[in-house]
Every structure is written in structure tokens, then in C-alpha cells.
């Protein structure tokens, strides 16, 4: 075991060295314009940096102050549950208007809030895409969609794309379940079938919330799903 830790530490040093060469804003993926002469090492380091800079399960979630579709500013400190109480936890979901996986998950996100906000776990949706890269995700379009679908949850705009890199989010939809102390307890997918609600067999997120309600650690604490890369210019 000690051997393993030593090796991990060695790898960590190497990883940190390569992370250090990459400015934080280089993490942005997808449509980011990078100079063509960038080598594959840089591309790899970007991926590493993305992981290293995100928040891990067990760590305190980064704070934020973001504008909701109603024009009000919200932070983890002023969000209440459906009873107007201090939440027992927060279902933070990076999602958007335009990604087909997000669209396929929309009703599930509404249902999650309707089921759990009264139990102390409100959904806090954050739209991370830059509208300059994805015009369908402008603040106005967000307002329109929220109105059209009568979103019962907060739909916040990550203006300037400051928040998603701090969480280490890479795709939509992507969930971070926080406990009452704002510690990340689960990270990943809503369930095991993001594309098709009919084919869901395991509701990872609901299981994680129920674990927290029982005072247990969610297992699995991390899951993955295919999603749309977060869009930047």
C-alpha cells in the first residue's frame, strides 16, 4: 500500500508538472480555438487539468452567485427548499436548452424537483454554455424555455462561464449532489439511461439522495454518461 501511495505521489508530481503548463481557461473544450501548433501533450494535459481542477466527491462545492431566469441572483447561501427552509441538500445539475441529452432529461429534472424539493433537496440547474457558441442557450432563450415548461426549479445562467470549470463539469447534463454542508456526495448521471427514459433501470441520483436521507454514503458515488461537451468560443 505504501508502495502504491509513493507511486501515486510520483505520478501526481508528473501530472502537476503538466497541469502547470496549461492556463485554467484552456480547460474549456469543444470549440475552443487553440493554435494549431499545440502538441498532443498539451491536449492530454488539458484533460488532466480538467480532472485535477474539478471538485471531487467529499470536497466542498464551489460557491457561486448567478442570475436566475427570474432576474434574481442566487447562491448556495440563499437557496431554500420547497418549504422555504434551509435545504438538506442541493441537486446541482449542469444542463441547457439545446443538448439532445439535456432535452431528453428535462422532464426527469422537473420530476426530481417536484419529488425532492419538499423533502429538502431542491434542483439547482445551471446553464454553462456560452451563447456566443450556442445561441439557443442565451439567457433570453433560457427564460423562454423555463416559462414554456413551467420550470419549478432555479435555472441559473453561468454568465462568463466561471462556475462550471470550478466544478470540473464537462458535459450537459451532469449532476453534483451536495449535502446540507455543501459537500459533494454524488457526481455523475441522473440514471443509467440518459437518452431514453423508458429504458431506465437504475436511478443513480435518487438512490444517492435516499442514501443521504438515511445518513449513508451514496454508492456508487460517481457515475458517467455520454453528454454534450460544454460549449465555449
Amino acid at each position: 500500500m505504501r508502495h502504491l501511495i509513493f507511486l501515486s505521489a510520483l505520478a501526481l508530481c508528473l501530472a502537476l508538472t503538466s497541469c502547470g503548463e496549461v492556463p485554467a481557461e484552456e480547460q474549456a473544450e469543444a470549440t475552443t480555438a487553440t493554435e494549431p501548433e499545440k502538441t498532443e501533450e498539451t491536449a492530454e494535459a488539458k484533460t488532466v487539468a480538467q480532472k485535477a481542477d474539478g471538485v471531487a466527491v467529499g470536497e466542498k462545492a464551489p460557491g457561486f452567485e448567478l442570475k436566475n431566469v427570474d432576474g434574481e441572483m442566487y447562491s448556495l447561501d440563499n437557496i431554500k427548499d420547497a418549504n422555504g427552509e434551509q435545504p438538506k441538500g442541493y441537486i446541482v445539475i449542469f444542463t441547457c436548452n439545446t443538448c439532445p441529452y439535456a432535452v431528453a432529461s428535462e422532464q426527469r429534472i422537473i420530476d426530481l424537483h417536484n419529488k425532492y424539493a419538499a423533502q429538502g433537496f431542491p434542483v439547482v440547474a445551471i446553464q454553462p454554455n456560452d451563447p456566443a457558441a450556442q445561441p439557443g442557450d442565451s439567457f433570453e432563450q433560457m427564460q423562454e424555455r423555463a416559462k414554456e415548461m413551467d420550470y419549478p426549479f432555479l435555472y441559473l445562467f453561468d454568465e462568463g462561464q466561471k462556475v462550471y470549470p470550478e466544478y470540473g463539469a464537462t458535459r450537459t447534463p451532469e449532476v453534483f449532489l451536495l449535502d446540507m454542508d455543501k459537500v459533494v456526495r454524488y457526481h455523475g448521471a441522473i440514471d443509467d439511461s440518459v437518452r431514453d427514459p423508458e429504458a431506465v433501470e437504475e436511478k443513480f441520483l435518487e438512490k444517492a439522495i435516499e442514501s443521504l436521507q438515511k445518513g449513508e454514503a451514496p454508492a456508487p458515488a460517481v457515475t458517467k454518461a455520454v453528454g454534450c461537451s460544454i460549449k465555449t468560443v
Binding site: 488532466v48 464537462t170 458535459r171 455523475g188 448521471a189 457515475t223 454518461a225 455520454v226 453528454g227
Partner: peptide, 20 residues
């Protein structure tokens, strides 16, 4: 195959699931 959590890591553990 839409059971993504079962196979994303089999492609590569570094993959978050975002495409491309």
C-alpha cells in the same frame, strides 16, 4: 448501447462522457 455508465470507462477511464 445507451447504458453509458457500463462502458465509458472501458473506452478510457479519462473519458468523462462528453463528445466529441
Amino acid at each position: 448501447d445507451g447504458k453509458y455508465n457500463d462502458w465509458i470507462d472501458r473506452v478510457d477511464p479519462q473519458w468523462s462522457g462528453a463528445i466529441p
